[in-house]
Design a binder for these strands. Sequence first.
DNA 1: ATGGCTGCAGGATGCAGA
Length: 260
Amino acid sequence: MRIATWNINGVRARIDGAVAWVRDAAPDVLCLQEIKSADEAFPREAFEDLGYNVETHGQKGFNGVAILSKLPIDEISRGLPGDDEDVQARFIEAVFSVKGGAIRVASLYLPNGNPVGSEKLTYKYGWMDRLEAYARAHLAAEETFVMAGDYNVIPEPEDARHPENWRDDALFQPETRQRFRRLLNLGLTDAFRACTTEPGHYSFWDYQAGAWQRNNGIRIDHHLLSPPAADRLVSAMIDKRTRGWEKPSDHVPVVIELDV
DNA sequence: ATGGCTGCAGGATGCAGA
């Protein structure tokens, strides 16, 4: 089972490239972030024509997440639990039947948090604490689950081409990294890092200042796996090709293969 | 570098992103 995550940075602006990539990569499940679209404006037919079920949790103008799946969706849920006042569309999860039982897949768009010292960073930390509570609950149930998405977290210095440039950024704050490590310490596995310890693998390159051409990137799009899911991990790869395409997203797809 | 691009809403330019 191939599970991909991709911050598409505007699904309507990116529809041709998105369809081309889905056709080529053929993920079983695709988690999208930053669709920047209300549900009714999401170009669902383009993906349904490729044989995908489409579930969205959109919002006009910015944010917005989606799950596309070749498999039937047994359950769908929108919004990260823990704050009824949170109106930002950043979380959707689906449950699928697989031969061993069930697998839960979440598509999440963790808040950026910049600038440091702002309420946006407070919101990010609160959101990460809610994500930890969510993970704890599903770990306690011993579920096979995957939390995939744009975490807006640079976990370690080797996940940035120039870590020193990110020292004062919300993505690399000690408190941000600590919260990410807390997730790992619960027993979750960073799928990509389980497959390689090499530095220099990135999932985002800024549009500005020739970041792509200079390979000035960061790795911020992750799959975190529960122990039963990690036991089934076969491979993880970052598909850099799309960053060189016409009108690219600034993020590229990350794809894992699970033997389920 | 002073955010140097980009998408979106709206119908000019401001906001958000990382």
